[in-house]
Computed example of a mutant assay.
Amino acid sequence: MEMFSRIYDNFLRRPRFDIYDRMLRYAIEQGYKFYTIEEFNSILLKGPLDTSIKYAILRHDIDTDPLTAYELFKIEKRYSIASTYYFRLNTIKERLIERMLLKGEVEISYHYEEIATYAKKYRIKSPNEIYTHMESIRELFLENLEVFRKKLRVASSTVASHGDFVNVHLKLPNWYLCNDDVRKKGGIKVEAYDPFLMNFVTCRIADLGDIDGIWTPRGFYDSVSSNENVIYILVHPRQWYSRIYSNMKADFIRIKEGFSYKLL
């Protein structure tokens, strides 16, 4: 079943851009106003949350396929929807991001993975050993964050941790590196899963369900129609279009890294 699901996702899934369009329109019709993560965090810092407002936080993790991310972004612009896009270093497309920034109402920031990157590079398979390298990993993160900001000319005051197979093996998420010292040095206002932010979220959904219903842990329309005060929506381009070359490339890299990490 897992193999069939992988083949379906890579080659057979029909484009879902029409579904995405209807989904956003429905949320607007139900009275939701969309915010970037940075915007919502700023609202929280100003005082008590206005419970009469329906907040929707729209976050995109660009693990693969920045071209499809741009297609989703164009749909959002039809409705003047604000959203946050987190790019990995290997999914940065400078000209595409420049076009996104020109259209406004978007936050572009860093989808970081330095613990996994460091562990793969040095074949570190023990969490205890990773802890002894954490200072170097945090320095690497700050260097990459600065490169990201300068290359794209963005503030990137929020960041989001990427999940890699190495993190599962180590039982150590990438967000572990984001301590108070790193935040201060890097000028980071919030990590995308910070308790300060998530404690105000009344419903979190992500597009990582099965073939028949992509939303988890419950459906998008059920969540929106329930009049949640704050909905946190996590979107991944791969769920909306089977861009064959992009998917094959990502899977090849994943297999190659997995083989190298586990066997060498």
Results as ranks from 00 to 15, higher is better:
Leu89Cys: 06
Tyr122Leu: 13
Tyr122Phe: 15
Lys46Arg: 15
Lys54Pro: 04
Tyr79Leu: 06
Leu102Ser: 13
Leu67Arg: 14
Ala82Asn: 14
Lys93Cys: 08
Ala82Leu: 11
Gly47Met: 07
Asn128Met: 15
Lys121Tyr: 07
Thr51His: 11
Arg88Leu: 04
Ala69Leu: 03
Tyr32Leu: 00
Tyr86Asn: 12
Thr91Tyr: 03
Arg138Gly: 11
Lys77Gly: 05
Leu101Ile: 13
Glu113Asn: 11
Lys54Arg: 15
Ser83Thr: 11
Leu44Cys: 03
Glu71Met: 13
Glu114His: 08
Lys54Phe: 06
Ala69Phe: 02
Ser109Ile: 05
Leu72Phe: 03
Asn128His: 15
Thr64His: 10
Arg78Phe: 12
His111Ala: 01
Leu102Arg: 15
Tyr55Gly: 06
Asp61Phe: 00
Arg59Lys: 08
Ile81Asn: 04
Leu44Trp: 05
His60Asn: 09
Thr36Trp: 10
Ile130Val: 14
Asn41Phe: 13
Gly104Ser: 08
Ser80Val: 03
Leu142Ile: 04
Ala116Asn: 10
Gly104Thr: 06
Leu140Val: 04
Ile37Arg: 07
Leu89Ser: 12
Ala69Glu: 09
Ser52Cys: 11
Ile75Pro: 10
Ser80Met: 07
Glu107Gln: 07
Ile115Met: 08
Ile108Thr: 02
Thr36Arg: 10
Leu140Arg: 14
Arg99Ile: 00
His60Gly: 02
Lys121Ser: 11
Gly31Cys: 05
Arg99His: 14
Leu140Asp: 10
Phe87Asn: 02
Lys77Met: 10
Ile57Ser: 05
Ile124Trp: 03
Arg59Gln: 03
Glu139Asn: 15
Ser83Leu: 08
Met100Gln: 07
Lys103Gln: 15
Tyr118Ile: 03
Leu49Thr: 07
Ile43His: 03
Val106Lys: 07
Pro48Trp: 06
Asn90Met: 03
Arg138Asn: 09
Ile115Arg: 05
Glu38Trp: 08
Tyr35Asn: 01
Pro66Asp: 10
Phe40Arg: 01
Lys125His: 03
Gly47His: 09
Ile92Gln: 02
Phe34Ile: 02
Glu143Arg: 15
Asn41Met: 11
Phe34Gly: 06
Asp65Phe: 05
Asn128Trp: 14
Ile43Arg: 12
Tyr35Pro: 10
Glu94Trp: 00
Glu39Trp: 07
Glu76His: 04
Ser80Asp: 14
Ser42Gly: 12
Tyr112Asp: 02
Glu94Lys: 15
Leu58Ser: 04
Thr132Asp: 12
Lys46Pro: 11
Leu101Ser: 13
Lys54Val: 02
Val106Gly: 08
Lys93Arg: 12
Lys120Asn: 13
Ser42His: 11
Ile115Glu: 05
Leu96Tyr: 03
Ser80Trp: 09
Ile53Arg: 15
Leu49Pro: 08
Met100Val: 06
Ser83Ile: 05
Ile124His: 06
Pro66Ile: 04
Ser136Val: 11
Arg95Trp: 01
Ser136Gly: 09
Tyr112Trp: 08
Glu76Tyr: 07
Phe34Leu: 08
Arg138Pro: 10
Tyr79His: 09
Ile37Leu: 12
Ile97Glu: 03
His111Trp: 05
Asp63Phe: 05
Ile97Thr: 05
Tyr32Thr: 00
Lys93Pro: 00
Arg59Asp: 06
